[in-house]
């Protein structure tokens, strides 16, 4: 295959990947764009904390003795039929109480378990759609420091993997876009150079120069 043919083929496939990947990621891009704006602003219409709904209830369950924290938390979680990632499980000083949070976008359960008599107090907090959108933006894998205090659900892990796919996909779209830009006619090329340079100059200034 000669070089010109190879180049044509590369151009064609690059354009296809740019289109298909862009279309596949379209709704993810909109979701993360919108949720990013919500996180950076405090718009009145998007209040989620003030509109939360809280209910408290008690339950009594059979709790096994002499189990490790991780197993104990999961036993309580399963018996209460609560779904979500476990955050910050802590025993009280006298080891009678075990407190932890179960959270998923839109819902949070604050659980206090009395290990002696099996009485469980649950505070359930429900958030509105704006709260869900914000939480979707910030749901991620636990860091090394958080691993001992956060147990993620399988679906939350899949969501975290999808964040990687979106990030890598967006980088590929950008690189492919730059390649497409290199093929445009000279007049559009120079105008495009102004756009790309201004974007780069701003980002480089923030990244590499301290003000």
């Amino acid at each position: 295959m000669d070089i010109a043919k190879q180049k044509r083929s590369l151009t064609k496939w690059n354009q296809k990947i740019h289109i298909y990947l862009g279309l596949y990621l379209l709704f993810f891009i909109w979701l993360f764009g919108l949720s990013g704006l919500l996180l950076n602003h405090h718009w009145e219409f998007a209040n989620f904390w003030e509109d939360r709904k809280e209910i408290k209830y008690h339950k009594t369950i059979q709790i096994s003795r002499g189990m490790e924290q991780y197993t104990l938390v999961h036993e309580i979680k399963n018996k209460l039929n609560l779904d979500g990632s476990v955050i910050n499980p802590i025993f009280s000083n006298d080891s009678i109480f075990l407190n932890f949070i179960i959270a998923k976008p839109g819902t949070r359960y604050d659980v206090q378990a009395n290990l002696n008599d099996g009485k469980i107090m649950v505070k359930e907090t429900k958030f509105n759609t704006w709260g869900i959108i914000r939480a979707l933006h910030t749901t991620r894998n636990p860091t090394l420091k958080e691993r001992s205090e956060r147990y993620q659900t399988v679906i939350a892990s899949i969501w975290s993997i999808s964040l990687d796919i979106i990030s890598v996909g967006l980088i590929i779209i950008c690189l492919g876009g730059w390649y497409i830009y290199l093929q445009v006619p000279r007049k559009r090329f120079y105008l495009g150079l102004i756009s790309i340079t201004s974007g780069f100059v701003v980002c480089i200034c923030f990244l590499f120069f301290s003000f």
């Binding site: 991620r140 979106i166 990030s167 890598v168 967006l170 876009g177 830009y181 780069f200 980002c203």
Partner: peptide, 22 residues
């Protein structure tokens, strides 16, 4: 073309940092 080119460095910054955060 122009909006895409302007935001591309921002997208790279946000995508790479999202990978770091995740």
């Amino acid at each position: 073309l122009h909006t895409g080119l302007f935001i591309s460095p921002f997208i790279i910054i946000f995508s790479v940092s999202a990978l770091v955060l995740n």
